[in-house]
C-alpha cells in the first residue's frame, strides 16, 4: 500500500540540518543511482544510498531508523563517482552524528571476545568506536 506523505516544515528543518552538518547540497541529487550501483555494501543495506538522499531531501525523518547509515563505511566509492560530485558518505556521517549526539551508542565493547580483542588491529577498534559512539 502506498504510503501517504505530508510535506511540512519539520521535514524542511531536517533537510536543512543534514545539509548543514554534511556540507552537501542534497537538493542537487539527480537520483541517478550511481552511488547505489557502486556501493560495495549495498547487499547489507535496507535502504539504498540514493534513497537516503531522496528521503532526506523530502524531509522523511524516519530514514534515521534505517541500517544504511551504520553500514556505510565511508569508503568514498560513491564520492568519486557521483555525477553531481555529491558526497553521500558525508550525508551518512551527518545522520549518524544526529543519532550519536542523542547519547546512543551503537557498539558494545563487552561483546568483543577476548580472543578477538587480542588479534584485532587497533585501527579497527578505534575506527569502529569513533564511528559508533558519540
Amino acid at each position: 500500500m502506498a504510503k501517504l506523505i505530508k510535506l511540512d516544515d519539520k521535514g524542511v528543518e531536517f533537510l536543512d540540518k543534514i545539509m548543514e552538518l554534511s556540507g552537501e547540497t542534497i537538493t542537487l541529487c539527480d537520483q541517478c543511482g550511481t552511488c547505489s550501483g557502486g556501493c560495495p555494501f549495498i547487499a547489507e543495506m535496507d535502504v539504498n544510498p540514493s534513497q537516503i538522499m531522496r528521503q532526506v531531501m523530502i524531509g522523511q525523518k524516519n530514514i534515521m531508523e534505517s541500517k544504511t547509515m551504520w553500514i556505510c563505511a565511508s569508503c568514498f566509492t560513491c564520492t568519486v563517482r557521483c555525477p553531481r560530485e555529491l558526497d553521500v558518505s558525508k550525508v551518512a556521517e551527518a545522520l549518524r552524528q544526529v543519532k550519536l549526539r542523542e547519547a546512543i551508542d551503537f557498539i558494545d565493547i563487552e561483546k568483543i571476545s577476548e580472543e578477538e580483542a587480542r588479534i584485532l588491529p587497533s585501527i579497527a577498534i578505534v575506527g569502529a568506536f569513533r564511528k559508533f559512539t558519540g
Partner: peptide, 11 residues
C-alpha cells in the same frame, strides 16, 4: 553492468 533501477530501487 551494475546499476540501480532507481524506480524499483533494485540493483
Amino acid at each position: 553492468v551494475t546499476v540501480e533501477d532507481t524506480l524499483s530501487r533494485d540493483i
